[in-house]
């Protein structure tokens, strides 16, 4: 009997540990809904979904790199690069197809990922400073190419440019949501089902053990850097399309947001492990909080305080979850 009751208590704790952040998200939504009835209007809900997309997609990118035990401070600038690259390419005469621009942009993103990996893995600079350096460099180049300001609504841009961010599939589902779902599904399959995804996680957990098994930590980390950059680039393509333009500084806020989302995500399903479904839930929670505060006319400074506090709370929770897991 005693044993049974204990195990029941244990399983409750386990259940809360797994899904607690999901319930918390619903709770926060209900809270804002009662505070401001406009919150639950269909239009606002769609709004929330759309704005969760950029953060969510960028979150998928840094999920990869954090899973491999590394970090990328350039995630924000990678988002900006995705947007600016599309805008600039489609301004030229020779790049007249949207598809070509996408392909070239993704190649540029691969290049940035390789650059990050080169300075950290080959040269051996700590990732913290090397990715920061690369991001400053890229930001400078972007500012030069966009003449220091932004590029907005050029007439030569094809219709597709705004469709990805502002269009609707079947007239109902916003396109960014489709992109987010597509990226998430691919990432979920990649991380949970393929050997490469499993290797990236394994390297993050114990890179020494990987060496003995013939898994090259350097190669896996390089793959993670490239994936992070490419996925952040996709987030940028979506964001540029939403704005119908681009700006070298447009990704500045995204890194902290994506990081918070990632950390909240690590509290969902697999305690202390960065995972794709968790990042999705995290993105939703984060956007609901921001959206709710906007509806309630919270001043800008208070929003920043809340954002900072959210990041710290999430980091603390993840750190304690990891400690608990290691102590077992």
């Amino acid at each position: 009997m005693e044993g049974n009751r204990l195990s029941k208590k244990d399983s409750t704790i386990e259940f809360l540990g797994k899904y607690g952040i999901g319930f918390f998200t619903i709770l926060v939504a209900v809270f804002f809904g009662t505070l401001e009835p406009a919150f639950f209007k269909g239009r606002n809900l769609l709004n929330i979904l759309s704005s969760a997309c950029v953060t969510g997609i960028a979150g998928m990118g840094i999920t990869c790199i954090y899973a491999s035990g590394e970090l990328d401070f350039g995630a924000g600038i990678e988002v900006a690069t995705g947007a600016c690259s599309m805008a600039l390419l489609l301004r030229t005469d020779w790049c007249n197809s949207y598809a070509l621009a996408i392909v070239l942009t993704l190649l540029i993103m691969v290049g940035i990922g390789l650059m990050n990996s080169f300075f950290h893995i080959v040269v051996g600079i700590p990732a913290f400073v090397s990715t920061l350096g690369v991001s400053f460099l890229v930001k400078g180049v972007l500012k030069y190419l966009t003449n220091g300001g932004g590029i907005y609504a050029l007439p030569q841009w094809p219709k597709a440019f705004t469709f990805v961010g502002q269009g609707y599939l079947f007239g109902v589902i916003p396109m960014p949501v489709i992109v987010l779902v597509a990226v998430s599904v691919v990432m979920l399959l990649f991380t949970e089902r393929t050997k490469w995804g499993k290797y990236i996680y394994a390297v993050g957990v114990n890179s020494k053990a990987c060496n003995y098994l013939g898994i090259s930590a350097k190669l896996q980390k390089t793959i993670a850097f490239v994936l992070c950059s490419v996925i952040c680039g996709i987030a940028g393509i979506v964001q540029g399309s939403m704005l119908n333009g681009c700006l070298a500084t447009m990704g500045d806020a995204i890194f902290t947001q994506a990081l918070t989302v990632l950390m909240f995500g690590a509290l969902f399903l697999k305690s202390g492990v960065y995972n794709v479904p968790g990042t999705l839930v995290g993105a939703l929670l984060y956007t609901i909080i921001l959206n709710g505060m906007t509806l309630c006319n919270t001043p800008a400074w208070a929003k920043e305080v809340v954002q900072g506090a959210l990041l710290l709370v999430a980091l603390c929770l993840v750190a304690s979850a990891k400690l608990r897991k290691d102590a077992r």
């Binding site: 393929t194 394994a202 114990n206 053990a209 003995y212 898994i215």
Partner: peptide, 28 residues
């Protein structure tokens, strides 16, 4: 250095064989 403490027994055994024996051409 020979194992992943938090991974399941099955994964600790499987990881050595993901490369060839346990995965198909697409890497699944």
């Amino acid at each position: 250095n020979g194992m992943f403490k938090t991974y399941s027994l099955a994964e600790n055994i499987g990881i050595l064989f993901y490369e060839k024996r346990l995965s198909n051409k697409l890497g699944f």
